[in-house]
């Protein structure tokens, strides 16, 4: 059938073109899936996915991607490692999906954090961080309070004074409702002696999305993880007012809240976790892998570059999550963010 053959040729030509395009990448770049060098434990034998339950470019995402880079670049695993994004509600959207669809699968990891615990409490979601199999608390990060570059606020005292005058006039942009950004905003209003009901908090999907509103003066204050605003602070598009951690950052001289006379200390943390129902052997192996990542060059550089606090641990994580859950519930209830 010469006619149909000709038609088929057209199909193959189109496809071959596509393949040629992709083949170029495959062969032009270093192979990421070299055969396994050693097999002390049989994990991992196939591709690992690390879910970042947020948009690309945010805190969860960059932590997950640096973890991915470390696994590959420091040659800790020889399988493919992918990062998938599942944004929404402080990570609870992605977490709920992981718990539901990937229980028992040690190849589906997730990055969660204090934000996720907060959102699960305020959002009253079914899925809980405590259901996951914790692998490692990978890092901690301070929150930063920023204002537009042209803002009259120069210190945390200015902010508290303005909140004392009229909390509703100070619109504060940050991440999802109930997360650590929201919590810090509420704490500031409380510190000013005002009712948290009057807090004007404008939630965005993350710091990156909130950045435009802050730079443009749409809001008076912004709150997010330091890493999310670092670029805009360095470029002087935003003014850093204070950081929330007790500990100062190594390279930057932004005052802590306590230095500004405000008795609030908050540090965000992120946790690498696996779905529920993972075998003890796989959990142990994952902890070993995470420790190797932490000790490696890529991760150590990232700590330096992103001004993270090195709070890595694989121990007592279940207790840690439970403590955070109950203390956060108490705080958020006291603030009136949970009813």
């Amino acid at each position: 059938m010469p006619r149909s053959m000709r038609r088929l040729t057209a199909l193959w030509a189109a496809l071959a073109l596509l393949l040629a395009g992709c083949g170029g990448v495959g062969s032009g770049a270093p192979a990421t899936s070299a055969p396994a060098a050693k097999a002390a434990s049989d994990y991992p034998t196939k591709a690992i996915d690390v879910m970042a339950p947020a948009n690309p470019g945010g805190g969860f995402d960059s932590t997950a991607r640096i973890f991915q880079k470390a696994l590959t670049d420091d040659k800790i695993v020889s399988v493919n490692v992918t990062v998938s994004n599942k944004p929404g509600a402080g990570g609870t959207v992605g977490m709920a999906e992981l718990i539901k669809n990937s229980a028992g699968d040690p190849y589906k990891l997730i990055m969660v954090g204090r934000v996720t615990v907060g959102s699960q409490i305020t959002g009253k979601t079914e899925a809980k961080v405590s259901q996951l199999t914790p692998i490692a608390r990978v890092m901690a990060e301070t929150e930063v309070i920023v204002a537009p570059a042209s803002s009259p606020f120069n210190s945390i005292k200015d902010v508290i004074d303005a909140l004392k005058r009229d909390p509703k006039a100070v619109k504060i942009a940050g991440g999802s409702a109930g997360g650590i950004d929201h919590e810090l905003a509420a704490l500031l209003v409380k510190e000013a002696g005002k009712d948290v009901k009057d807090l004007a908090y404008v939630p965005f999907a993350g710091g990156g999305e909130a950045a435009a509103a802050i730079i443009g003066g749409q809001v008076q204050l912004g709150i997010s993880g330091y890493g999310e605003f670092k670029g805009q602070i360095d470029a002087k598009q935003m003014k850093a007012i204070a950081i929330s951690a007790d500990q100062k950052l190594k390279s930057v001289s932004i005052p802590t809240l306590k230095e500004g006379g405000v008795n609030i200390g908050l540090t965000n943390w992120r946790l690498l976790a696996a779905p529920p129902g993972i075998s003890e052997a796989d959990t142990a192996r994952l902890k070993e892998i995470a420790t190797k990542v932490h000790d490696g060059k890529t991760w150590q550089e990232a700590i330096e570059k992103n001004s993270w606090f090195d709070s890595f641990t694989t121990e007592n994580l279940i207790t840690f999550v439970a403590t955070e859950q109950s203390s956060l519930t108490a705080t958020l209830t006291a603030l009136g963010l949970v009813k």
């Binding site: 596509l18 393949l19 992709c22 495959g26 196939k46 591709a47 996915d49 493919n80």
Partner: peptide, 13 residues
């Protein structure tokens, strides 16, 4: 052909 494209080159599982 699709399998090669997605699974092998784009690493979609």
């Amino acid at each position: 052909a699709l399998y090669v494209l997605f699974e092998r080159l784009l690493t979609v599982d």
